[in-house]
Design a protein around this nucleic acid. Structure first.
Lengths: 140, 140
DNA sequence: GCTAACTTAGTGCGTGCGCACACACTTTCT
DNA sequence: AGAAAGTGTGTGCGCACGCACTAAGTTAGC
């Protein structure tokens, strides 16, 4: 095993699992993975809201993509746009109660999928090491 | 740290690093990451050739996408299509000497990028654990 | 206070991607 | 041998995504 094995594994696991988890989530709750990710970030944020810039930085997708996802979520009633009183340029995306309910409903499916396809295939110690190692990569 | 941290880290590291490595590779050698991946698989295969089905299964991209990447690589002279004498439906994609040379030239850039952005941010032991854990995920 | 430089969000546009279909060939069954 | 089922490729099509540009608003400098 050479020193690129970790990176190669990451690429392949991502390619293999993302479509599976996305489809499971979409089949069970009509939520694409990007919607779930955005709702999750908004729900975790203070005041349950973020500007587009913050959202684009935290979420997996780009800022411009985030803007369009928020459009879709707004149409679905899961998110609402709120003017930022302190800065006329930016507007917050805030998760609605319907959005929180939808997120709570979908979470078990997603978590179960992660467990079934990912975490259960390794030991708990390995999972912790993977998490800390990848965390360090992001901090750099 | 909950038990989804490893998966969340994988998603974010993928989103953060793939564009960087792709652009480094493309700037230095005009090779998109998908080209590199396909060339790598072909080069490692017996007879340095694979059918589209095999390629789609091994590479990160889908079979249909592989077919088009092979088109592009053929136009660039890095791969050639070879008829399969044993099965008239399938055709092999075989890496050319020009393709091997291009791959060898690009490899140091890619490996250096992986080292700089990924492996160097963790200990050697962590890298090994990440590799074995992700390997097990793929086998399942 | 007025202007210039900067920041933030939205959008047109091109591109990469996989699904699903059609076609060609192979294998199996009678 | 002929028909039917199965398998491997290529391709039309639509979707998701990010870049680069524009408009609107804010901050800094004088």
């Amino acid at each position: 095993m050479d020193n690129t094995a970790a990176w190669a594994g990451l690429l392949r696991v991502h390619a293999a699992l993302v479509p599976v988890l996305d489809q499971e989530l979409q089949a069970a709750h009509g939520l694409p993975l990007t919607w779930y990710d955005v709702l999750l970030e908004l729900n975790a944020a203070p005041e349950r809201q973020l500007t587009m810039g913050e959202l684009g930085a935290k979420a997996v997708v780009s800022r411009s993509r985030s803007s369009r996802v928020v459009d879709e979520l707004t149409r679905a009633g899961l998110v609402e746009r709120v003017a930022n009183p302190a800065d006329g340029r930016s507007a917050f995306a805030r998760i609605t109660t319907a959005g929180r309910a939808r997120l709570r409903a979908a979470a078990p499916t997603y978590l179960a999928g992660i467990e079934a396809h990912f975490t259960s295939r390794m030991t708990a110690a390995e999972a912790r090491t993977v998490a800390t190692a990848l965390e360090k990569v992001l901090k750099g």
